[in-house]
Design a protein around this nucleic acid. Structure first.
Length: 572
RNA sequence: GCGGCUGUAGCUCAGCGGAUUAGAGCAUCGGUCUACGGAACCGAGGGUCGGGGGUUCGAAUCCCUCCAGCCGCACCA
């Protein structure tokens, strides 16, 4: 089906085109009417005529019969009020549309999303939280839009730490090591290796030697390395499950995957005449980047010691994703501190011709998670806070809240519910503010059942579903006609109809918080409606209409939340 | 020093392809109610949109500058 916004926009566009081809109506939802078109002022400036005169001409040119009535207001705003027939038609169409009016794209793209990307052999911690949550939301939104998503969990599975990790594994004995790793005791394993590395000269020597054997491709060493990687990835999957993240073990395509492409990166850059030797390192100097002494800043592809820098890996990844995965779009969900690095990698990739003009490539950056002191979130002893612990804590608090509110149900369903609530609290808090900002991690606020939180939205959904559970006489869905005589009914209906453009706003700009804002607004529209309009106790056609509104609202909330990676339970 | 991000009500944040009286949540205060789930609803107070210039009929939104905070700036990722 065509969304209400698209339908309205198409009509306006035709009129705008008649005045000046391509002029944007700038259509948006409005507080003063249903929709407003703000494009007249820009158009008037363009054609050099008084705005109100142009506005009236647009009104005359625009065929809105059966769609909307229009008023010219202020300097030249077009205030649009949707016609009752249109509202009814659109809402009825939504009754059998699981996509709530947002059609799947006619031209699917392949979108490679790089997210989560923790270091192997280290536990997931708050530093990985945002990339994981935001990346997964973007993946879900892309899939819903109709694109093909290739998730890339760019895990850190290569480099110097593996020397000590492998030696530590040998010291423990393989069986013992596997046992402890498979139990998720990655932190203890890593720290065990670290302590020996720092205190035991002999161990340090062995570790260094082991890095060399690993990088030279020694078969036995690689086998041991793979044990550590596989066990870590298996552990990661557990945490992803706990958080309901869609990443799988197959998506864990780490740094090591690109090893055999690195020589090609260097030689091809060299052949293209882009490579410059500087202080013994092989570099590319993309224009526009300078260091603190105002000298050109290099992207170091191969280090003085002949090792490859991470820039080489990132370049190889760009290349692989474009030419082998046929990506139309590359997204890197990585923290803001790496902005310059990615700018340079992308610039070099463009210079080398590995990143064609038509391929969208973006660093989806985000701010820090802060502790209560507004500094980087750390434990009291200065260690990074583990994700598993954070989620467990949230689950425990959600569960306690359910108990104190006399949740009716068995312990099993209560626990499941607590997990749903905990996930939604953490994810929604992360997704609902603008990505670039830092935010303070505050479980109490996230888990609050009132206010702009995940649990509040889940609650709104659960209330809606309970209406249908408690209904004793059937809902004649096919009889539902949307008259919308009460103001709050109309307000709610407009909210439901606005889902497609709200989704697109968030989707196109890669800003999930816009979808959050929309869903919260929708939930509030529902509660106002629910307060003012009896549903089950109303009768006849009015009852069918109100039930239909409830159904549409519940499905919109559930769908919207699912695109954020949040499950909306039937009751809570 | 250069670059990036941030600075909007007491607190946490939307709004920033300029546009009709600057919004929400929390907190505060005051109402509603034998409530189809009160984990609710309605309302009030509270803001020189960091400061100062500029462009414009019109700027929280665009440009310049200053201030504050955070981050980055060659061989760790």
């Amino acid at each position: 089906m065509t969304s209400t916004y698209d339908l309205l926009n198409a009509r306006l566009q035709a009129a705008f085109d008649a005045v000046a081809p391509g002029a944007d109506p700038v259509l948006r939802t409005s507080e003063r009417s249903d929709y407003q078109a703000n494009g007249v002022m820009a158009l008037a400036k363009q054609v050099g005529r008084p705005p109100r005169e142009v506005a009236h001409e647009i009104v005359k040119l625009c065929d809105l019969t059966g769609v909307a009535s229009v008023d010219v207001a202020g300097p030249g705003f077009l205030n649009l009020t949707l016609s009752p027939e249109l509202l009814n038609d659109q809402l009825r169409a939504l009754l059998d549309d699981p996509r709530m009016g947002r059609a799947s794209t006619a031209t699917p793209k392949t979108v490679v999303i790089d997210y989560s990307s923790p270091n192997v052999a280290r536990e997931l911690h708050v530093g990985n939280l945002r990339s994981t949550i935001i990346g997964d939301a973007l993946a879900r939104m892309n899939r819903f839009a109709g694109n093909k998503v290739v998730a890339r969990n760019h895990v850190g599975d290569w480099g110097t730490p593996f020397g000590m990790l492998i030696e530590h594994l040998l010291d423990l004995g393989e069986d013992e090591a596997v046992a402890s790793l498979s139990m998720g005791e990655l932190k203890a394993f890593y720290q065990g290796a670290r302590v020996k590395f720092d205190s035991d000269e002999g161990f340090k020597e062995r570790s260094r030697a082991r890095v060399v054997t690993l990088q030279s491709g020694d078969v036995e060493t690689l086998r041991l390395w793979k044990i550590i990687v596989d066990q870590s990835v298996a552990y990661l999957s557990q945490i992803y499950d706990l958080l309901d993240i869609t990443l799988t073990a197959q998506d864990a395509v780490g740094e090591s995957y690109y090893n055999n492409m690195l020589d090609g990166v260097v030689s091809d850059l060299d052949r293209a005449g882009l490579l410059v030797e500087s202080d013994g390192a092989r570099c590319v100097f993309p224009p526009g980047f300078t260091n603190r002494d105002n000298e050109p800043l290099p992207l170091i592809v191969k280090k003085r010691d002949e090792g490859f820098g991470y820039a080489a890996t990132d370049l190889a990844a760009v290349r692989d994703r474009v030419s082998n995965l046929h990506a139309d779009e590359l997204l890197y969900v990585v923290g803001t501190p790496q902005a310059q690095h990615f700018d340079m990698v992308f610039a070099v990739a463009r210079m080398a011709g590995w990143l064609p003009e038509g391929v969208r490539c973006e660093h989806v950056s985000f701010g820090h998670v802060l502790g209560p002191d507004r500094k980087m979130f750390k434990t009291r002893s200065g260690e990074s806070v583990l994700l598993a612990g954070l989620v467990d804590e949230a689950i425990a608090r959600a569960d306690a809240a359910l108990v104190s509110r006399n949740f009716e149900g068995d312990e099993f369903s209560r626990t499941e519910l607590a997990v749903d609530i905990a996930r939604s609290a953490i994810k929604y808090a992360d997704l609902s503010t603008e990505r670039q900002r830092d935010y303070v991690f505050d479980l109490d606020r996230m888990l609050a059942f009132e206010g702009d939180t995940g649990p509040y939205l889940q609650y709104a959904h659960a209330r809606l579903r309970s209406i249908f559970r408690r209904s004793t006489s059937p809902w004649n869905e096919n009889e539902s006609t949307f008259v919308l005589s009460a103001a709050s009914e109309r307000h709610l209906a407009l909210g439901v109809l606005a889902f497609p453009e709200a989704f697109d706003l968030a989707f196109v700009s890669l800003q999930p918080h816009r979808l959050c804002n929309y869903l919260f607004d929708l939930a509030q529209r529902f509660t106002s409606f629910y307060e003012a309009c009896p549903v089950l106790s109303s009768e006849g056609k009015l009852r069918d209409e109100r039930l239909a509104l409830c159904d549409l609202t519940a499905r919109t909330l559930s769908l919207g939340l699912s695109l954020l990676g949040i499950h909306a339970p039937e009751q809570m």
